[in-house]
């Protein structure tokens, strides 16, 4: 219980920080709009093509927008040596990971909701009955990505080029999550939902469990000075 309270405190701190600066959400959302704009002029998709490309394009946007948020996650802790204060606080370091991870997850989900809405409006994508499935797929796909992304962001913040390092480390590792999310979304978009949907949802759950457990076990080593 104490562990969860501590994680909650870290999460609250990050939410408050984001509420006051709005750095991460603004950049993620603007990025999403830019992708939609570029996609329109690059492919000029008709409605059938939009249906076909939507799952892949949505997740590509989610992933790259998520990278922007993840890069902020620890960059903000470096300013004014905030990280030192965090490490000196009498909390379990696993709780720091969990709090940070939940904050990243929440920012990503908020940005993804907004991006999805814009996407539906700009490309006349009728989400209708698919919303229910997306409410399941998007959090499951984002959870594993946010979790492994949080520990890799904590690693890459120590390098000279942390903004470049994070995608280089994260994208290959997160590839299975990307495959699972795109496939599940594509199955949900087909009418009626494809049989593959249940399979890829289960796959995402397995990916999430592995990549929450492993970073939780290893996070202490990342913070150790």
């Amino acid at each position: 219980m104490k562990f969860l309270n501590q994680a909650g405190a870290i999460l609250w701190k990050d939410l408050l920080n984001e509420y006051r600066t709005r750095d991460a959400l603004t950049s993620m959302l603007l990025f999403g709009l830019l992708v939609i704009l570029t996609f329109h002029f690059a492919f000029e998709p008709d409605s059938l093509e939009t249906q076909k490309f939507a799952p892949g394009l949505l997740w590509t946007t989610f992933i790259f927008a998520g990278l922007l948020g993840l890069n902020r996650a620890f960059a903000s802790e470096r300013e004014n040596e905030a990280l030192q204060g965090l490490l000196l606080a009498p909390v379990n370091w696993g709780a720091i990971f969990l709090g940070k991870m939940l904050a990243n997850l929440l920012f990503m989900l908020l940005a993804e909701t907004a991006i999805l809405g814009c996407f539906a409006i700009f490309f006349n994508l009728s989400l209708g009955a698919k919303i229910g499935w997306l409410l399941l797929i998007v959090p499951l796909g984002t959870l594993g990505f946010a979790s492994v992304g949080t520990i890799l962001a904590a690693i890459s913040m120590n390098t000279r080029m942390s903004d470049v390092m994070l995608p280089l480390l994260l994208l290959p590792v997160a590839l299975p999550a990307a495959i699972g999310s795109v496939e599940a979304t594509a199955a949900a978009f087909s009418d009626p939902p494809g049989a593959a949907l249940a399979f890829w949802l289960k796959f995402l759950v397995v990916f999430d469990v592995i990549f929450i457990t492993v970073p939780l076990l290893l996070f202490d080593f990342v913070l150790e000075e």
Partner: peptide, 11 residues
């Protein structure tokens, strides 16, 4: 040593 070990395990 420590950070690359963590990434090595995850990778």
């Amino acid at each position: 040593a420590r950070l690359s070990a963590v990434f090595g395990i995850i990778g």
